[in-house]
Design a protein around this nucleic acid. Structure first.
Length: 818
RNA sequence: GCCGGAGUGGCGGAAUUGGCAGACGCAUCAGACUCAAAAUCUGACGAGAAAUUGCUCUCGUGAGGGUUCAACUCCCUCCUCCGGCACCA
């Protein structure tokens, strides 16, 4: 029989809502637990990734509630962003309406899954209140010097005359008109996240409960490298070019100098070269390559005609333009040491540049003048003037000192991480609250004028520029300082800005500031943050950065917002992520309608442990549904026994095994949730227990009938977080008015964890030859006696000598015979 | 190239501290119920060998080696796959 999940699930969803079961209020007598899942972008419908993510969070939430925690479990919407704008262009509608319709629908889907959220704390990042504090944070950052303006390139469609987001550029072409996309230099806003690069890296140490993988990814992304910056003079000119190197110790081996084609001094270097036209042609070529030939690994270069003077030995070395030097990293110029760097070696071979060995692995060995292989390791210096014979490390230290003393450079640490460009030339984002006044210059909008809201009467059909640029009422404003006429910034913020602090706002929906520190002190940090591993880098670095900035503002005492992170793997179909554009979406609604939310929740959690990727396969859904039905049927077939509520005896011989199994299951399920988050094995343990229970049901019923009800009660509590509607319904049928979430999570009885008899394996020469059943904690001597009496053991040890015996209590007896 | 992670039956996965490999579920097969099917229930289910039924043995966790009484688990070498970063100076 299939239980009627439709009525039951609706009923309990209403009860949770009416009783405000998941409302979170500060109660300083209780320990809090902040359970957070990454909020969704309201794209229209929830997908399997959401179902998985929120099912995990919901199990933890209910589990923690039953363990006496004051749980906050909020939900909201990352509701600004490009898809809304694209949809608006397509449907000639408004992003706001599109978004709020989607939110409405998705919220109903989440409710249908039975997820327990405190909807009173719901946030949508597009709401005026959120815009206001988002903008306020931006102006604060500006005041503190964490925001600046810089020219930066954007994608530009020449036919639509508009800036394109990266997502709108498909294979180098515009997503709408397919014309080739170019680049444009625009003034844009940046956040100085690099000021925090070192701290973001160092405080990884505090994140003990983060997956190693995520930390490794972030470290990679921040990309710290320690080296030195050295000034080189250009021979015969006043030019000085700085280079960055991690191998200052190799500087005596530098035989050429290479700079990026984008280096600001290129123009001056080639000004009077007879080869000027050829060089310009080369620059164009490399520029083209960099756009088309993504992994173009052939090294190319051209001699500029100028020479640099090696700061350490005065040698003149030729300056080349080379395609493998990036302006974005270091200083855009390098000293090249072909003997000790793979790329420099390849380049030198190609262009017949001398190669000079200056580092050797072994001081006592002699090396030939010819260098036919690259040695990139550290070692000892040779051919390096007064630095010869020093180790690489010593040399770097001394050379660094020399640079500092002579004002020619210094040891320096650089990062791959670059400042965060937050400007977007789009409509559906938080307007950057800056005003351009002819008299006062750039003025951040005052708090009392916030939020700067988006104008609604906007034509979204792309005609050139950002939609905001065309709104006269938006652009024209008063200067907050002098009151004179001024113009508004038309760029909006990267939506990652919005999502970098929403979890503070959930915890404190304060009306006169972004959040209130008293409330933050109670609720924050987030005790468990659950989300897709695809956010391992950007979102999780930005959020950590924001927390540190807030701390430095004096707004909180918190340095890390998420001490415990659980990253779930992606749900894939045929090996690739489900996405609308690929058309491989599995819609959870169909499954919910067919099997009910409880089955869907159980199913997605049972399929694999959360952190692993999950290849979608619907086959197993029948299995978990069967499990629920079997419980339902056993329960209802025995209602008469269950409502009698008789006394029972735990110690009774006939039923002791099921109590032991029950207590073992409590222990296992508790630890699986709490310690490992392996919800799949917790469910498996519950199934295993129920199998035992049904097999021995008649025996229990006839020997110890009162136990049936007790066992069902415990089972419902343990299964409750996974299948909350189902379990609450049965709980009610036992005559309780309470809801399971307010019941206490069962404790296991340590006296019922161990069985009275255990199997001891008898191993002879590494192979298991017998199992003997003995009382728990049986003495070594007695086990040995029994083992020697076993016929099967005798077979293997007769006429042989036992030379070694190892006894592990309750587990095994291992013998070595000869 | 560098940095992570993984590799176990037909499939998803389990084995938490080095101690019974394959829990739990799916699929499959057989049986019961049924006129029949579905549903449900019962049983079998890593590979191979032997056997009269039960009691049996050998091999087996990507490959090869090692440590150990004992290895999916620890060490070394290698292969494959996935993820991140990448002419990073």
């Amino acid at each position: 029989m299939q239980y009627n999940f439709k009525d039951i699930e609706k009923k309990w969803q209403n009860i949770w809502e009416e009783r405000k079961t998941f409302k979170a209020e500060i109660d300083r007598k209780k320990k809090k637990f902040y359970c957070l899942e990454m909020f969704p972008y309201p794209s229209g419908r929830i997908h399997m990734g959401h179902v998985r993510n929120y099912s995990i969070g919901d199990v933890i939430t209910r589990f923690k509630m039953m363990n006496g925690y004051n749980v906050i479990h909020p939900m909201g919407w990352d509701s600004l962003g490009l898809p809304a704008e694209n949809a608006a262009i397509k449907n000639k509608s408004n992003p706001k309406d599109w978004t709020s319709n989607n939110i409405k629908f998705m919220k109903s889907q989440l409710k249908k899954m039975g997820f327990g959220y405190d909807w009173d704390r719901e946030i949508a990042t597009c709401m005026p209140e959120y815009l206001k504090w988002n903008q306020y944070i931006f102006t604060k950052m500006y005041e503190k010097g964490l925001v600046y303006r810089k020219k930066s390139e954007v994608n530009w469609c020449p036919s639509c005359k508009t800036v394109l987001a990266n997502e709108q550029v498909i294979n180098g072409r515009c997503w709408r008109c397919e014309s080739e996309v170019g680049l444009r230099d625009l003034d844009q806003w940046f956040l100085k996240i690099t000021d925090y690069a070192d701290e973001l890296l160092n405080s990884h140490k505090e994140l003990e409960k983060w997956p190693q993988k995520v930390i490794a990814m972030q470290k990679n992304w921040i990309g710290k490298s320690e080296g030195a910056e050295v000034e080189f003079k250009v021979y015969g000119t006043d030019l000085k070019i700085n280079i960055f190197t991690t191998r200052l110790d190799t500087i005596f081996g530098s035989t050429f100098f290479a700079i990026s084609i984008k280096h600001p001094f290129v123009k001056e270097l080639i000004e009077d070269s007879p080869q000027k036209d050829k060089i310009k042609e080369f620059i164009k070529e490399v520029d083209r390559d960099s756009k088309t030939d993504l992994d173009g690994n052939e090294k190319k270069g051209i001699f500029t005609g100028k020479y640099a003077i090696n700061t350490f030995n005065g040698e003149k070395i030729p300056i080349w333009l080379a395609n493998f030097i990036l302006m974005e990293y270091g200083t855009g110029a390098i000293m090249s040491v072909p003997a000790h760097d793979e790329r420099d070696f390849e380049f030198a071979k190609k262009y017949n540049i001398p190669i000079k060995r200056v580092i050797v692995e072994d001081k006592s060995k002699s090396y030939s003048e010819d260098v036919d292989d690259v040695f990139t390791g550290k070692g000892y210096l040779i051919n390096s003037g007064s630095y010869s014979n020093l180790s690489s490390e010593e040399a770097i230290r001394k050379m660094g000192g020399f640079l500092r003393e002579n004002n020619l450079g210094d040891l320096k640490t650089i990062f791959r991480l670059r400042d965060w460009g937050v400007s977007r030339q789009r409509y559906w984002g938080t307007p950057i609250p800056m005003v351009y006044c002819d008299k006062c210059g750039i003025v951040p909008e005052f708090l009392e004028n916030l939020p700067v809201e988006l104008p609604l009467d906007i034509d979204f059909t792309p005609k050139g520029g950002s939609p905001l640029e065309k709104s006269k009422e938006f652009i024209n404003t008063k200067c907050p300082k002098c009151g004179g006429p001024a113009k508004r910034e038309t760029d909006t913020m990267d939506t990652f800005f919005d999502s970098s602090w929403y979890f503070f706002r959930y915890a404190s929906l304060s009306h006169n500031k972004p959040f209130d520190n008293d409330e933050i002190k109670y609720w924050m940090p987030v005790d468990l943050y659950i989300g897709g591993v695809e956010h391992a880098i950007l979102h999780l670095i930005y959020s950590r950065f924001f927390a540190k900035v807030f701390r430095d503002f004096g707004w909180t005492d918190l340095s890390e917002p998420f001490p415990h992170l659980l990253t779930q793997g992606m749900v894939t179909l045929e090996g690739s992520a489900m996405s609308k554009s690929k058309g491989n979406i599995v819609d959870p609604d169909e499954l919910i309608n067919k099997y009910g939310a409880d089955t869907v929740r159980l199913f997605i959690l049972f399929a694999s442990p959360p952190e692993k990727g999950l290849e979608w396969n619907e086959k197993g859904v029948e299995g978990v549904n069967r499990f629920l039905n079997r419980i339902w049927n056993l329960f209802h077939d025995n209602m008469n026994i269950l409502i009698e509520n008789k006394k029972f005896d735990m110690e009774k011989e006939e039923t002791k095994p099921i109590f032991i199994k029950l207590n073992q299951t409590i222990k296992k399920v508790t630890e699986d949730i709490e310690v490992r988050f392996h919800l799949n094995t917790a469910i498996a343990a519950l199934m295993e227990f129920f199998n035992d229970f049904s097999v021995s049901f008649n025996k229990i019923n006839s020997n110890n009938p009162g136990a049936v009800r007790y066992i069902f009660e415990v089972l419902l509590k343990l299964l409750g977080p996974y299948a909350p509607h189902f379990c609450n319904e049965l709980w009610g049928k036992l005559g309780y008015n309470s809801i399971l979430e307010h019941e206490k999570w069962p404790d296991f009885n340590p006296e019922f964890i161990f069985e009275e008899k255990v199997n001891i394996m008898v191993q002879i020469n590494g192979k298991i030859r017998d199992k003997i059943r003995v009382n728990i904690n049986e003495e070594e001597l007695r086990v040995k006696e029994m083992a020697f009496m076993s016929e099967r053991v005798k077979k293997y040890i007769q006429e042989k000598q036992v030379i070694k015996m190892i006894f592990i209590k309750n587990k095994m007896l291992s013998m070595v015979v000869k």
